[in-house]
Simulated scan of single mutants.
Amino acid sequence: MNFTPTELERYSRQIQLPGFGEEGQKRLKDSTAVVTGVGGLGGTVALYLAVAGVGKIILVRGGELRLDDLNRQILMTNSWVGQPRVYKARETLLNINPDIEVEAVNEFVTADNIDALVQQADIAFDCAFDFKERTLLNNACVRWGVPMVEAAMSGMDAYLTTIIPGETPCLSCIFPETPEWDRWGFGVLGAVSGSLACLAALEGIKLLTGLGEPLTGQLLTMELGTATFAKRRPYHDPNCPVCGNFTKQRLSGYVTNKKVGVRSQESGVRS
């Protein structure tokens, strides 16, 4: 897929990066990312994927914009309060970068829609507000062999990891018991969700292009009140009910082609 002169100019500064170049840009252009949750975390992830040139972004989030969302949801405007947020997010992203495709799905993640969403994607970003949606996305990513960037925050604390089915612990390994999660039960500072979102978007870009070293098999924990960061290695449970039977052989295409979004041969969809 060739670049237009506009695209070459738009992405010229990142194409200059050692180890990135036009090949890295092509990988972004050829990729589809699904982002669940389009709030202070997911919306900012989507913004940085869009300006980097990810070819298609699928935004998944039901519900309307609230006034108390506006301290952190940078794709929104005051005039949009009370309306479905994903449509405004799509409009904003396309105004910033009309060279990409953005699909707005005005639904919450459910058992009925998640497989169809994940099967379209080369990478998923887990930015949902509760663990019910996070669990559904994790399980679908494992089923279809789709890498997932997992990011979450509470107050001034945050964590981030990159999950590759068959190679790293999945969300079920990291949290074998679903944590209690009250989306109204903690304060949110926009700069905290934005900081985590930038790191999450960077993880995805690294994984899609081969730039740098992603957090595969590592959990980055952050206490942003004191700027304390630590890397930990979560347990990869061989008996995990979600990923325990997912073998490395099913990701051989990822290793040989360095192409994110490998599907199992049984799925009958593209690799």
Rank of each mutant, 00 (worst) to 15 (best):
Q25P: 11
K26V: 11
R27G: 04
L28H: 11
K29C: 10
S31R: 04
S31E: 03
V34A: 05
V35I: 10
T36D: 05
V38G: 01
V38I: 15
G39R: 01
G40M: 04
G40T: 03
G40P: 09
G40W: 03
G42H: 07
G43F: 11
A46K: 09
A46D: 10
L47M: 10
L49R: 04
L49P: 00
V51A: 02
A52D: 14
A52W: 11
G55H: 07
K56T: 12
I57D: 09
I58N: 09
I58C: 07
L59D: 01
L59T: 02
V60S: 02
G62V: 05
R66F: 09
L70V: 09
L70F: 07
R72F: 07
Q73E: 05
I74T: 13
I74F: 06
I74P: 02
M76P: 00
M76I: 00
T77S: 13
N78T: 13
N78E: 14
N78Q: 14
S79N: 14
S79K: 15
G82M: 06
Y87T: 05
A89I: 04
L93D: 09
L93N: 08
L93E: 10
L94F: 03
I96V: 14
I96F: 08
N97W: 03
P98Y: 02
P98E: 10
D99Q: 12
I100S: 10
E101G: 00
V102R: 01
E103S: 04
E103C: 03
A104K: 12
A104S: 12
N106V: 06
V109H: 03
T110N: 05
A111D: 11
N113C: 12
N113E: 09
I114M: 07
D115E: 13
L117R: 09
L117E: 00
